[in-house]
Design a protein around this nucleic acid. Structure first.
Lengths: 209, 209, 209, 209
DNA sequence: GATGAATGAGTGTTCATTCAT
DNA sequence: AATGAATGAACACTCATTCAT
């Protein structure tokens, strides 16, 4: 769970979510829909409650303030994303490093591309929030999973694992976001994905592996 | 000039800079300072005017609304960034492609890192704005410059220039942003920069160049 | 009901009176008091709310904007005025036309004169508003009532009812307003009322009735 | 001149107009055009100056504040209207009273109907202004002219001239305004005018004249 | 617990008026 | 005299949050 991130990393205004339930899901769903439809600046607590079919009062029982809501939505999203990354990492244990990275790119890319407007809306919603804990927790989880996976590579050459993981992760996650921002899609996006695979493979192979 | 971006992409009116560029500069400076200090959500027209030492009324003579102000600040920032990228591209014409990319990464990285808090603040401010025109104009400029540079590479191997440029640009710009978001700094950031250079060189060399 | 005026004539949204008619009444009362005291140009939403003893926010729950408030105040006023006119018309069914018109003038005059400053304030507030629906709805109601009354006159001579009603209504309502504007009062106003009765009677008698 | 109205009647904020000139005319013209086009609430000093082709500063040389401008426009309008009424009154000296009143109605009606939108715009603009002096001065002039005319009637029956004049004036002016408010036009307006003549004639004839 | 009416501080924006040039 | 940039008080309206029912 991302929420279990080190206390030190939790933001001052770290939001508390009371408990999970169908109501909370409805609220999450409503929030995402509204973020997609109108963007963060048009998102009001009243509108979220209305669309979720609950009263504002009730919403405030689950989320102590608006930030907490947006935080929680992103937390859940990143949780799921991290799970998928972890699953992929487990699945490819023991394979050649190049194949691992290709699988990683595929997983990340597909997850992000599945619902592009949700991805975009959440990328945007996370700004102006005390999001360091969020990002950090996600980074910790994925870094750990990827490092472990790479360490098990059948062609592991013993080069600096921390540095390699960090580089790959930063490049892959960064490139995907940038591609989104530039509005790539269709053939262009597909080519970029392929090139990214090629680039990462070339990086791993650099020592003549 | 970024301002020459397709009119159709700019739903919001652009500021009509008359003259008094001193005043406009003061307003820009104030805006950036406040974005750095308190973030977009705390940025009010009154506060900007106050800090810039002008009245709100005056501010509204130069910027028809708050959005236009933020737009203009980002536009200027991206203009300057694009200029630096273009300068680097001109400078490295005719060199080996690997050196070009290293120079590009250096330039971009240094520009972004010079004033990290400004970079971070502007990354955040640009959200929730009608920023497609902005990003698109920046992309057009830098893509053109980089494509031209690569075409002049002494070891140009004739592989798909569009695709190569797009990949490099997306990876470099994306990685830098991601690095910022993860809060890398010091030795970690430096290593990442080096790795990025290695990765991009490896990408260019992939065909045994 | 004036509210049943053609929807097409009401570009501005109408207040959705939910309940809490006490609150709405307080707001109406406050609005009228302020209109009387300081005039439309000094009427601010804050001041109305303050005097009504509610918060601005609450006011905006009942009236979507300032115009809607002023519209509603006038609507209520004209509703009541129309009711009185209708009552008089019912009451004088079957009497001689001259007596009818005298009764009509009395009713209208007295209603307007009861609270002269309110009358004046509302006359003024209605300007610069999308008031056609208001005026039209009032006209439709009163015209209908008066036409019906005149048709029942014991000495009905069969002359053009539409034209007669229109003339009488325009003259009476217009004269009263003009008298207000000129600031008539006391004996002068009283004489004018009498003369108006004489004139309307003479008009009805013109064919030697 | 209406401006020569008794000092006591001049409003506290009685606006002062510096001097007449082509500039002033341009300002008047611009004001009226804007009032017709967008109404009082959209009338800003900047817009008036712009349309008049002068600077705001210059406008403030002629009119010490916005009210003064609107006051002056109405003053000029009423001056001209009063002149026409006076001219008619002079012209019909010595004729039968009924013909006088018909001529008066014709003059007033035509002047108001010539440019209906200007008439309407000015009716509206005069609200919320300290307009008592304006109306009073107009009343004094027209009352005097009409009283004098009626006194010279070939069939003068010696009945109370003050009362008669006041009644006729209030009825005629009031009916015209009311007709405007109701949006009468074409055949309806024409019939109303005829009926008004009939009514006023009947009033004058009431003693069997 | 759930509701949603009430709150009121806070914000973007306008525009009459001034005054340095 | 003429200009028009600068001023800043004022206002309509929003919306996160609370709390009586």
């Amino acid at each position: 769970m991302i929420s279990s991130a080190p206390q030190a990393l939790k933001p001052r205004k770290r939001p508390q979510q009371r408990r999970a339930s169908a109501t909370v899901d409805a609220i999450f769903e409503a929030t995402i829909q509204l973020l997609v439809k109108d963007g963060l600046s048009q998102l009001t607590t009243t509108r979220v409650a209305e669309r979720a079919g609950v009263s504002v009062g009730t919403m405030y029982q689950y989320f102590p303030h608006k930030q907490a809501l947006i935080y929680a939505v992103n937390e859940r999203y990143l949780d799921r994303l991290a799970e998928r990354v972890e699953a992929t990492c487990r699945e490819w244990q023991g394979n050649p490093a190049g194949d691992m990275v290709e699988a990683l790119i595929d997983t990340y890319w597909h997850t992000k591309t599945e619902k592009p407007d949700v991805t975009r809306a959440l990328y945007r919603s996370v700004v102006e929030m005390d999001n360091e804990a969020l990002i950090s927790a996600f980074a910790v989880r994925t870094d750990a999973a990827i490092t472990a996976m790479l360490a098990s590579a059948s062609d592991n050459d013993g080069s600096d694992a921390r540095s390699n993981t960090r580089t790959l992760v930063t490049v892959i996650f960064g490139a995907v976001r940038n591609s989104f921002e530039r509005g790539h899609s269709g053939e262009v996006a597909e080519d970029l994905r392929r090139q990214l695979v090629i680039m990462c493979r070339a990086y791993l192979d650099r020592h003549g592996r």
